[in-house]
């Protein structure tokens, strides 16, 4: 019996965005990475194109993190005083597709690093690795507004992915990206309407920016509201395929950051013997969270544990195999 395969017909597709720039395009990256472009739901190659594989970044900070679980010391302890060395290790030894540097040290409650210090940290990463680079601020919008400009200017031509723009606070980072032709992360709080609204506002600042947005729908860790973000992403992706241009941008998620705040990732086995060995539990908490977001349409993920990165890259390899009938 020949079964009549059900292929959904979509009107549109996800926009393609290229991160990084090589010498020919005014940057210094050894290669660029293109994400998006799907005309099918995640990995359903039988009904459309999935031209670009999702990519996985590792997370680098501009300061040695004080609150990471001690298990990370064996991976990053020898390099986390220097963001350049740290980034290089992530790419060379752990196989990160790209690097996200978080300028955590700029946080006034931590090191209160100056915009010049931030520029320095970003430059170190750009010099140390050839992969495209994502730069995010410390999360305190007043301070971040002072950082975006100098960083964007110093890295002009590199086609960074810079963030984050939020509904209450999108102009500073968007202006910095516009002036130096970088890409912007548009972050909305697990809310598809705000997601759209923010994209519209950014596009209103410059129509060219509409094609230079990566959506961060705000992702939650497994067990901490993952189902909300999962469904928001599924809805956004369906919207994109059905022709909603203001939802048709590729999506990014900070999986590592969220997962390694959870109790399940950080609690030693002797405190919760019923949960099994801690490091593997935390690593799989991260990999399982990432797995779920791949199924809801994520394009860029930022992870923390090198083994989670390896396993997820393997899962992406498997999922990118053609499954046409």
């Amino acid at each position: 019996m020949a079964v009549e395969i059900l292929k959904e017909k979509y009107r549109s597709k996800v926009g393609e965005v290229t991160l990084g720039a090589t010498k020919d395009d005014g940057g210094t990256r050894s290669h660029t990475i293109t994400v998006g472009g799907e005309s099918a739901l995640p990995f359903l190659h039988f009904e459309g194109e999935v031209p670009n594989r999702p990519v996985v970044a590792l997370e680098v900070w501009d300061m040695a993190p004080e609150d990471w679980d001690p298990l990370f010391e064996k991976f990053y302890g020898d390099v986390w005083d220097d963001p350049g060395k740290w980034a290089k290790k992530c790419v060379d030894e752990y196989g990160a597709d790209l690097i996200q540097i978080r300028l955590k040290g700029a946080d006034p409650d931590l090191k209160d690093a100056s915009p010049e210090d931030c520029v320095e940290a970003v430059k170190k990463v750009l010099e140390a690795v050839g992969v495209p680079v994502i730069v995010v601020g410390c999360g305190k919008s007043e301070k971040d507004a002072k950082i975006y400009g100098p960083v964007a200017e110093a890295a002009a031509g590199e086609n960074l992915l810079l963030g984050v723009a939020e509904l209450e606070d999108y102009k500073a980072v968007t202006s910095a990206c516009m002036a130096n032709s970088h890409l912007v992360i548009a972050q909305s709080p697990i809310d598809i309407n705000i997601c759209k609204q923010l994209n519209i506002l950014i596009a209103e600042m410059s129509t060219a920016m509409a094609n230079r947005i990566i959506i961060d729908p705000t992702i939650a860790a497994l067990g901490y509201g993952i189902e909300y973000s999962y469904s928001i992403m599924e809805r956004a992706r369906n919207g994109a395929l059905q022709g909603d241009k203001m939802l048709a941008m590729p999506m990014i998620g900070n999986v590592g950051l969220e997962v390694w705040r959870t109790k399940e990732a950080n609690t030693p086995e002797d405190e919760e013997p019923g949960w099994g060995e801690q490091e593997e539990r935390g690593m799989l908490w991260e990999a399982t969270t990432a797995m779920a977001y791949l199924q809801s349409g994520i394009n860029i993920m930022v992870l923390r544990h090198p083994d989670a990165l390896k396993i997820i890259k393997g899962n992406i390899d498997d999922l990118m195999q053609d499954n046409s009938y």
Binding site: G223, W275, G276, Q278, E280, L284, A292
Partner: peptide, 10 residues
Amino acid sequence: KQQLLPLLSW
């Protein structure tokens, strides 16, 4: 346990 707990939580 550490392998099944994430899966069952999902």
